[in-house]
Computed example of a mutant assay.
Amino acid sequence: MLELYWGLLITGVLFAIVTVIFGDLLSNALDGMLDFLSGEHLHAFQPMVLLSAITVCGGAGILLTRYTSMGTYAVLMMAILVSLVVAVLVYFLYIKPMENSENSLAYSMKELVGKIAEVSVPIPAQGYGEVVVKVGAGNTNHIAASFEHVDIQTGAKVVTVEVVDGTLYVACLDKQV
C-alpha cells in the first residue's frame, strides 16, 4: 500500500508543478482543447479540489503507515477521511470565495438599451452628439443620435431606445427639447 500512497503523492505534486509552470503554455499550444478540464460546470469537483485530495491522501497514507501502528485498512480509511476534509476545506475556503470575488467591468452594447444617460455634446435632429451613460461603477461616453429626429441640448436626460452599429439612438425623458 505504501507504493500506492507514494504514487498518489507524486502524481499530485507533479500535476501541480506541471499546471503552474506549463498550464497556460499547454492551453495556448493546444488552442484550448483542454479547457473542459477546468471543471467550471462541476463546481465541487474542480481539478484543484480533486488533486489536493489525491495529494493529501497519499501524504496522509505515508505518514499514517510509517508513524502509527494502525492496520492497512484503517490507514486507508483515515487517509481518505483526511483527504475528504482537506478537499472540503479547499473548496469552501479557497474555491468558493474566489468564484464570488470575480467581477467584470465589461458590458455589452445591447445592455445599454433602456439606460438613462445625460447629453454631453448636443445632438442635432439629423446628426450625432454624445451622451454619458452610467455603467457599473463608472461612466462611459458614447456617440448618440436622436431617435425622434429632434434637437437635444446638452444636459438633457435621455433614454437609450436602440443601439445600431455602436450608435445609441436616444429619446428625451424631460420633453424640453
Rank of each mutant, 00 (worst) to 15 (best):
L2G: 07
L2M: 14
L2A: 06
E3R: 06
L4G: 01
L4H: 08
G7E: 07
G7Y: 03
L9E: 05
G12M: 04
A16V: 01
A16E: 04
I17H: 02
I17T: 04
V18W: 01
T19A: 05
T19V: 09
T19W: 07
I21K: 03
I21P: 00
I21E: 03
D24P: 00
L25T: 05
L26K: 01
L26S: 05
S27L: 09
S27E: 04
N28W: 09
L37Q: 02
E40T: 10
H41C: 02
L42P: 00
H43S: 10
H43G: 01
H43M: 13
F45H: 02
F45D: 01
Q46F: 05
V56L: 12
C57Y: 00
C57M: 15
C57E: 09
G58R: 07
G59T: 03
G59C: 09
G59Q: 04
A60Q: 05
A60K: 07
I62V: 13
L63F: 12
L63N: 09
L64S: 08
L64Q: 07
T65M: 08
Y67H: 13
G71A: 11
T72P: 01
L76R: 04
L76T: 08
M77V: 05
M77F: 15
I80F: 15
I80D: 04
L81R: 01
L81H: 01
V82S: 09
V82T: 08
V82K: 04
L84H: 01
L84P: 14
L84N: 12
V85L: 15
A87R: 06
V90M: 14
V90E: 07
V90W: 06
L93I: 07
Y94N: 11
I95M: 13
P97Y: 05
M98V: 13
E102M: 15
N103G: 08
A106S: 15
Y107P: 15
S108A: 10
M109E: 14
K110R: 12
E111M: 10
L112P: 08
L112D: 09
V113R: 08
V113Y: 02
G114T: 09
G114C: 08
K115A: 06
I116F: 10
E118L: 14
V119M: 10
S120G: 01
P122N: 12
P122V: 05
P122F: 04
P124D: 06
P124N: 07
A125E: 13
Q126P: 00
G127L: 13
Y128F: 11
G129D: 06
E130Q: 14
K134G: 02
G136L: 11
G136S: 08
A137D: 15
N139C: 01
H142F: 13
I143H: 03
A144P: 11
A144G: 09
A145K: 15
A145M: 14
H149F: 06
V150T: 08
V150K: 09
V150N: 04
D151M: 10
D151K: 15
Q153H: 11
Q153I: 03
Q153F: 07
T154H: 09
T154M: 12
A156K: 05
A156C: 11
V158N: 07
V158F: 02
E162K: 15
V164M: 12
D165K: 11
T167P: 11
Y169E: 04
A171P: 00
A171C: 05
Q176V: 10
V177A: 12
